[in-house]
């Protein structure tokens, strides 16, 4: 079990580190080249490699054939690829690739040391469960405002852009304040941005309802230890479901057999149809 566990989590950590360094390097190269430093690398904007850019410019693309200022066709390509991946395996982008999610997890490790088992369970559930739908409002507002203004309105509040460009002087104060708030909140709540505000996570999360390969729990072998529930950063009750169809699942695979689940072949990824869903 330990070998399997280390493989999945190690793979995830490696992917997260690679993505974080890659995005940081892209932002740094652009900044240095704009500052006049000669570097034999292409100058790529972070907006060009953000799949959410593709989401907000879809309306512009469909109605005029063009893109919102600052965006590039690569964002549309990444959006399409991300949606296909989510259709099969869920929001793997969130659980593995998103550097802002990784940043929150890193800060969260400090929070876990401080609050121990209370970490990520400090917010009353009756507030938490309603706040989880806030990100859909954010998604609708951002897409609508972008369509109406034809401007990248989200950039002014985007903590992802702020995280990698805070030193460039090009980040709006509002985005820096939101990044600071997300960072502080991560000490109390795991992935607060993902849970309550992320519009791209909201969109990808919907694919949990229809994904081909959801997380499934085999009742016949489950020992009801609830370790899967404790491991889930999004507080999903995996232990009460046959198939995890929760819109908040980020496909981090922390709940699976060989990772959190101590019983082999019990919490798995499978296309076989199950019964009750979480």
């Amino acid at each position: 079990m330990n070998t399997k566990r280390s493989r999945v989590q190690t793979l995830r950590a490696v992917v997260q580190w690679v993505m974080f360094i890659l995005v940081a390097a892209i932002a740094l190269v652009k900044y240095l080249k704009e500052s006049g430093v000669v570097i034999p690398l292409p100058e790529i904007s972070l907006h060009a490699v953000c799949p959410f850019g593709g989401v907000v410019t879809v309306y512009e693309f469909l109605t005029t054939g063009g893109l919102i200022q600052k965006l590039h066709s690569s964002a549309l390509v990444l959006m399409a690829l991300g949606l296909v991946v989510a259709f099969f395996f869920g929001p793997i982008f969130c659980g593995y690739f998103c550097p802002l999610g990784t940043w929150q997890e890193w800060i969260g490790k400090l929070g876990k040391r401080i609050f121990k088992r209370k970490y990520n369970r400090l917010l009353p559930s009756f507030i938490d469960k309603y706040l989880r739908y806030l990100r859909y409002i954010v998604l609708v507002l951002v897409v609508y405002q972008t369509a109406v203004t034809a401007k990248l309105v989200f950039a002014d509040v985007d903590p992802y852009y702020a995280l990698f460009n805070f030193y460039t002087g090009e980040v709006a104060l509002s985005a820096l304040l939101i990044l600071a708030a997300v960072t502080v909140l991560s000490l109390f709540v795991e992935r607060p941005w993902c849970k309550y505000f992320c519009p791209y996570g909201a969109l990808l999360g919907l694919f949990n309802l229809i994904r081909v390969f959801p997380v499934r729990r085999r009742e016949e072998t489950c020992i009801n230890c609830k370790k899967c529930d404790v491991a889930c950063p999004m507080n999903i009750k995996v232990s009460t479901a046959k198939a995890v169809r929760d819109h908040q699942c980020i496909s981090c695979h922390e709940c699976l057999s060989g990772v959190a689940c101590p019983v082999e072949d019990t919490v798995i990824i499978s296309s076989a149809k199950g019964g009750r869903q979480a």
């Binding site: 060009a48 690829l81 395996f89 695979h253």
Partner: peptide, 26 residues
């Protein structure tokens, strides 16, 4: 699932680049 996802994304980027759809600069 992860390896397939990574390969799919890389293949998609490569394919879109070959088709001229992959533009990261204006």
């Amino acid at each position: 699932a992860i390896v397939l996802s990574i390969l799919f994304v890389l293949a998609g980027i490569l394919g879109s680049w070959a088709l001229g759809w992959w533009q990261t600069q204006t």
